[in-house]
Amino acid sequence: MPSIVQETLFGHGSVHSLDGEEHRHRKAAFVDAAYDDAQVARLVPLLEREWQNELDDWISGGRRSAYVAAVGAFGRSIMRWAGLPGTPDAQTRWARRLAQIVDGFGAPYSPAFPLAMVNRWWSDQHAKNLIDATRSGRLAPAADTALAIWASHRDARGELLPSRVAGVELQNTMRPMIAVARFVAFAAKALHDHPVWRDQIAEEASERGTWAEGQIATMFAQEIRRTAPFVPMLPAWAIQDVDLDGRTLPRGGRVVLDIFGTNLDDRSWTNPAAFDPDRFRGVDDYETLTAFIPHGGGDVRTGHRCPGEKLAIAGLAIAIAALSDPRLSIENSGLTVNRRRLPTMPRSGGRIRAVDSRSRCPFH
């Protein structure tokens, strides 16, 4: 990764700076912490509870955007899932810091970038303190939580990671879930623009009695991930000479994976510019779709696929189901997207308010 990304978004010494066996060994810990279905199952009830709180707040008159609500809901959920202590207010404050790092890392010539550096420093110190407290016994998280996994993780030589690096990787286990809040902003726009799908998702959730694991909500979430230009590309260096389509990229050359272009390529997708969640109907194993790479591609253990992808899908689908509640209205203003900014989302984050019951049709 370029240094401005390494030192802000991913953190110094993270898995993203490693190659070969050292990288695979470190990444295996991420797979243990986040990819297993049991880890997803632990997170789902936490997500549902937090989104219920957000729904209740909107119905009571709250006016926060879908993005702001998602930062808080995802942040509190993932921190409890990770075994972290702290009050909901404290967890929300840290979630906002982590979200701002995501917002500012790609804008080195704006005030958002130095603020991201400040939040990176604060977060690194806070996460290091959590690792140190766990190693000393002052904290005792459950063995299957991210905090316990990173506090006890040893490198390929059998040595404990420096507590600062372990804290960086603890953040890299949590922050991607908070970053999904940007997908939620895109989902709010899509729900506004495609009310037929919103009605179907609301009906599905009502019939099932839960926001989790709904087929239609998940299809909608997958189409959001395919069409939202949140992470448009990923950079790397070639570690050996590469021959591809008649061209040779020498070792040390820059590689850019065009995520957005691949997800919208007409050689792989039918009518790719159309927003159509139905294209994911009946797709039980999305990892077999080689042109569907919003969280990277390949095998999660040996390729570039993000181990947190399952968590992201589960969280996004629950958020979409919550936003489809007929008691909520998604405002029309502020839904434009500046595609020249990295990362991007609808300008307002998707403004949400409660529907005025006095304006409802008496037959609905």
Rank of each mutant, 00 (worst) to 15 (best):
A107T: 11
R96L: 01
I131W: 00
A187C: 12
T210M: 12
A148N: 14
V184E: 05
P195D: 14
P141T: 02
I149C: 10
W197N: 10
I201T: 12
Q125G: 14
A140Y: 07
A202M: 14
S152M: 07
E213G: 02
I178S: 11
P108W: 02
A90K: 03
S123Q: 07
P114S: 09
R175T: 06
A143C: 01
I201Y: 05
A127E: 05
G158I: 07
M177K: 04
H126N: 10
R182H: 12
Q125V: 01
S163F: 02
K189C: 06
A202K: 11
E169S: 13
E207F: 00
L139D: 10
A190F: 11
A116M: 12
R157S: 10
A133L: 01
D155P: 08
E203C: 15
G137V: 08
L147G: 00
E204Y: 11
I149W: 01
E207Q: 15
V184A: 15
V165K: 00
L160C: 13
E213P: 02
G209S: 14
G104F: 01
M177H: 06
W150V: 05
I101R: 01
R96C: 00
V184T: 14
T87P: 03
F105V: 02
H192W: 14
A205V: 15
T87I: 08
S206N: 14
E207I: 09
M174D: 04
R93P: 00
H153S: 13
V180E: 06
D193Y: 05
R135M: 11
V168H: 00
P162R: 13
D89G: 05
S136L: 14
S206P: 05
V118M: 03
A190W: 04
A148I: 04
R96Y: 02
